[in-house]
Structure formats: C-alpha cells, structure tokens
Simulated scan of single mutants.
Amino acid sequence: MKIFETTLRDGEQAAFIHLKPRQKADIAVSLEAMGVDIIDAGFPVASTLDWEGAYAIADATNKVQLSVLARHIPEDIKAAYSAVKHQIDRSRLTTWVMPYELYTRYANDTNIYKRVIDSSREAVSYGRDIFPAVQYYLVYSGNRDRNFLRELACEVADAGARCIAIADSQSTLNPDSLASLVSFIKENLPTGIDISIHCHNNMGLALANTVAAIKAGANQVEATIGGMGDAGGNTALEQILAYASYFEKDNPLFECGCRLDSLYKIACEVSKLTGFQFGSNQPFVGPDTFTVETGIHHSLAQNIQNSTFDPKFIGRNIQSTVGRHSGLAGLREKLQEIGVETSSINFHILYSKVMEASEKEGTVSDDTLLRLVKEM
C-alpha cells in the first residue's frame, strides 16, 4: 500500500488554510521522515505562492517521490515541470480532464466522450515527454458512467499513464460500489498499472471506502493529516495507517513503510501552522481522544490493553481525568499519574469526597484532588 500524502495540496484547500512555502517545506520534511511514498507538492500554475510551495517542497526533501498537479493544458504542465525540474528524477505529473460529459451544455454533443479521451491522451503523452511518470485522475468517478471510466482508464494507460486515480470527488460512492468500480476498471488495465484511491469524506465513509478499494485491488491511498480538505475533507492518514497496523497487520495488501510513532507530532505541527483544529474526540489526533474519565474505560484500558489499539503506536498515551463518571480504578490511576503515594489512602472515603466535589466542579482538577487527599 503506497501512501500518497496530499495535505499540502488537497488538504490546504480547506477553507481558511493558507500555508507559506517555507511552512510547506517544513511539513514535507516531516512527512518524508515519517516514510510516506509520495508527497503531493501542489498545483503550481494556480498562483505564485503555489509554484513557490512546490519548488520549496522539492528543494527541502531528498528521496520521497513528488507529485505536481496540472490540468491537461500544456501551459499548466510546463508550469508544473518548472517548479520541480531541479528534482525531476523523483517527480510525477498528475493530470486530469474535467468530466465534460456531465455538463449540461454538452448534453447534445455526441462527440464529447471522444473529446475527453483525446484531450486526456494528449495530456498524458505530453507529460510523459518531460516527466518520468504520469498519474491520471478519474475525477467525479461516482457520478460518471462506469463503462466510459474503464475505457478512459485504458486509453490513458495506453498513452503512458502509470497510475490511475479513482476519485470519489462528491462522496457519492459507498464501500460496495467503490470496490466494484475498482475491480471493474482494474481487470482491463495492463499489468503494472497502479490504482490510486482518492476519497472525500462528505458522508463519513472515506476510511471504509478506502479499505474496500484496497481489498478490491487499489494499491495507493491518497490521504491528508486529520482528514483536512475542502468541505467534508479527505481520507485521514492516521486512520488508514492505524487501521492497517491493527486490523490488517498480517495482510500484505496493507503493508507500508510509514512510521506511526511520529504521526501525532506531525499532526500537531500541521495544526499549529495552519490553525486547523481537530475535533475534541477525533480519532487518534483529537486533543481528548485518549483522555478517560468513565470508570469502566479506566479498568478496561488497564486489563485488556493487548486487545485494543495502543495509543503509543502513534506517539500518544492514555490520560486520566477525574469526575462524577470515574471509578476507583480511574481515581487510583490519576493519583499515581500526578505522583501521589497511594498505599495509605482509604479510597472509599476519598471517592466519596471526589464525588461531592464533582457535583460542584464537574471535572475535578489536580489541585482539588491533592487538597482532598491532604484533608484526609
């Protein structure tokens, strides 16, 4: 499973996110150290800052593969090339043609399918003349005729594309329909063509869809830190990596070279630089995801750790907090966490005092807890 990391391009398309070239370079260095296979360096023709961002990413990294996005227009492709030409040996062009057959103004154009195919072939052929590799996006895949998508995929592969990306741009596919589409397209492609999966998360299905696509034959995943991206965002990098390491650790389809232990640190770096806030209990990266108050979760975390996902794998730890949902196990764990000797404490009495305090404070602070211990 190859990881195509697109935080610095598709992730940055989230509203209010604007990274400077130097910031993109810094994040790219961290992603390269983490072990992602490909970094999406951006859409150079979009603006001067986008061009400078792609250039800075190429300049700051050493070995990771780079992708630059361009429409099928030659000027776009030239701009993409100019941004990474100093690292062209490890760069790829990623291009696409819009799904013009879906546009109302082309409803009566009997040649529109041929025009999309011809433009796509020309873009891929032109890109192959100046880039070592080309990836082609089947954009809006969930909205288009699957027979045409298969024909288009075969045509661009014949023109030289080495990777076909199936993009569920509008979140209109579910795991079954996406898996079926992957299999349908893959069975007619030449051997050796990668299939990438690019899922948006408007319906909350990005992880499930990505997993289904890999099992159906896709071998490249496009993802962003924290699921950043426009509207509902993208497949979250940490979620697919955690899924692979926990549920599919013995499945060769999900093998990848990413180091999970640095993931949370990178997520915090991205959040700090962008101002993008993860949900409080967002899986793996939320600030309170591994904070436990409920008594049963305290005891279960202690007693059956081997059958649950260990947060240490992504550089985190379970944190305890005390409140009216807590039990004795959580209270004891919290005292040990803040350095209190517990051997002489009557926990049943302390627990009663904590419950009284929680009725006033809700969550009982460390200072309050220490005061209650001293008063016993």
Rank of each mutant, 00 (worst) to 15 (best):
F254Q: 04
R324A: 14
S343Y: 14
G339K: 10
F254L: 03
C256E: 00
Q282N: 07
L263D: 02
T321D: 03
K249E: 01
G323W: 03
I296S: 01
L273H: 10
L335D: 07
V322P: 04
L335P: 01
K272V: 00
T321H: 04
V292Y: 02
I318N: 08
S280A: 13
Q282C: 11
V292M: 09
S262F: 08
Y246D: 08
G295K: 10
S307I: 04
E293A: 14
A267F: 01
I304S: 08
P287N: 07
Q282L: 12
V292L: 13
V285W: 03
E255Q: 13
N303V: 08
G327H: 11
K265G: 08
L263W: 07
G327F: 04
I314D: 10
F309T: 09
G330C: 10
F278N: 10
K265I: 06
L328C: 01
E341R: 02
R332Y: 11
Q277N: 14
I266N: 03
G327K: 13
E248T: 08
K249P: 02
L300P: 09
L273N: 12
K265A: 09
R332H: 05
G339D: 11
Q336W: 02
P252S: 03
G323E: 00
A267P: 10
F276Q: 09
R332P: 07
Q302A: 07
V340L: 08
E293V: 14
Q277Y: 14
C268W: 12
N281V: 13
Q305W: 12
G339C: 15
R259L: 03
R316V: 10
R259T: 02
K312P: 00
V285D: 06
S299R: 05
F278H: 12
